[in-house]
């Protein structure tokens, strides 16, 4: 809203003004900001309702869905949430996300580096295979994954939740593309000093790949924190549920009687907060496609 009160006295590109467009008229500006505020409300208001509803009582949430003042104000929903299995699910999500992210960043850079730089037989074939694997949509893998987890005998264990997510073909692809932009001369120097391949990779090349590593970290974090399908087929043990799996059960009677909207809103809000924090801190990397020139190889 603060954007409205500010005055546009200095167009960013005076040259355009000279050409004839000039500053937008008052009416145009009104429409422009009107549209913008409409869309902003459309995108922000639902989250505000979510926050407010989590402090309402059940009848209040059902009866006054749009109201922004809980009447009466209660933390009952949050207490219900914390006395449920929710804390267990949260812990599981943290464990799984941490392991998956660390594993993915390490193994994907390792493989990406090999595909980008090391000369070994079968490299081209492997890369072709990688492209093929990337074309496999995750959703058709639900049944196959369940079959193999059962077959290997790790169904209902932490490794079942973590290991299959640890390698991501798209992650390898991103790292490979990035490593190819790093000049080879950098490695030459390390080689002349007699560093081993792994040492060159670890101490010389990897530190230069920081932007790609951050991007991959964020994608892995977000991907594993929000993953649902894999956790559905990897476990049916409530002690191993992650947030997505556990909270998804809320809608199918997991909360007992009634709709319990306040609890559902609290649950949804709390699982959004870690994503929101990471998003705000690393926004630049999320939106890198739009941020032309923000980072460079």
């Amino acid at each position: 809203m603060s954007a409205l009160s500010k005055d546009d006295r200095t167009p960013i590109r005076p040259v355009v003004a000279a050409v004839g467009e000039g500053r937008p008229s008052r009416g145009k500006k009104f429409w422009f900001y009107g549209m913008l505020i409409f869309f902003a409300l459309l995108y922000i208001y639902p989250f505000i309702i979510q926050l407010v509803t989590s402090f309402k009582t059940d009848p209040d949430a059902t009866g006054n869905a749009l109201s922004l003042t809980p009447d009466p104000f209660t933390t009952g929903a949050w207490e219900t949430l914390f006395s449920s299995n929710y804390p267990t699910w949260f812990t599981n999500s943290v464990i799984v996300t941490l392991c998956v992210t660390l594993g993915r960043v390490f193994f994907c850079s390792l493989a990406g580096y090999a595909l980008a730089r090391l000369k070994f037989t079968g490299r081209i074939a492997l890369f072709t295979g990688l492209l093929a694997v990337m074309a496999v949509p995750g959703i058709v893998l639900l049944i196959p994954k369940f079959l193999i987890l059962n077959y290997v005998g790790i169904y209902n264990t932490y490794p079942a939740l973590i290991v299959p997510l640890m390698i991501d073909a798209a992650g390898i692809f991103i790292m490979k593309q990035f490593f190819e932009t790093i000049p080879e001369s950098v490695e030459e120097a390390a080689r002349i000093d007699g560093a081993s391949t792994f040492r060159t990779f670890w101490s010389v090349v990897l530190p230069m790949a920081k932007p790609a590593l951050i991007t991959l970290t964020i994608l892995s974090f977000q991907g594993s924190w929000n993953e649902l399908g894999h956790f559905i087929v990897a476990t049916n043990d409530p002690d191993l549920y992650t947030l997505t799996r556990g909270v998804a059960g809320f809608t199918t009677g997991g909360l007992g009687s009634g709709n319990q909207y306040p609890v559902a809103m609290a649950a949804a809000l709390l699982m959004t907060i870690p994503t929101a924090l990471v998003f705000i801190v690393f926004q630049r990397y999320f939106t890198q496609g739009a941020n032309a020139g923000a980072e460079k190889g």
């Binding site: 979510q50 949430a61 929000n226 998804a248 559902a264 809000l269 994503t275």
Partner: peptide, 25 residues
């Protein structure tokens, strides 16, 4: 504004689904 419009894309589909179940109740 860009943050506001992009934010739902990074939020878990489960959380968004719960929210919309309530909005469309």
């Amino acid at each position: 504004f860009r943050t506001a419009f992009y934010f739902p894309s990074v939020v878990s589909s489960v959380a968004i689904s719960l929210l919309f179940l309530f909005l469309f109740a």
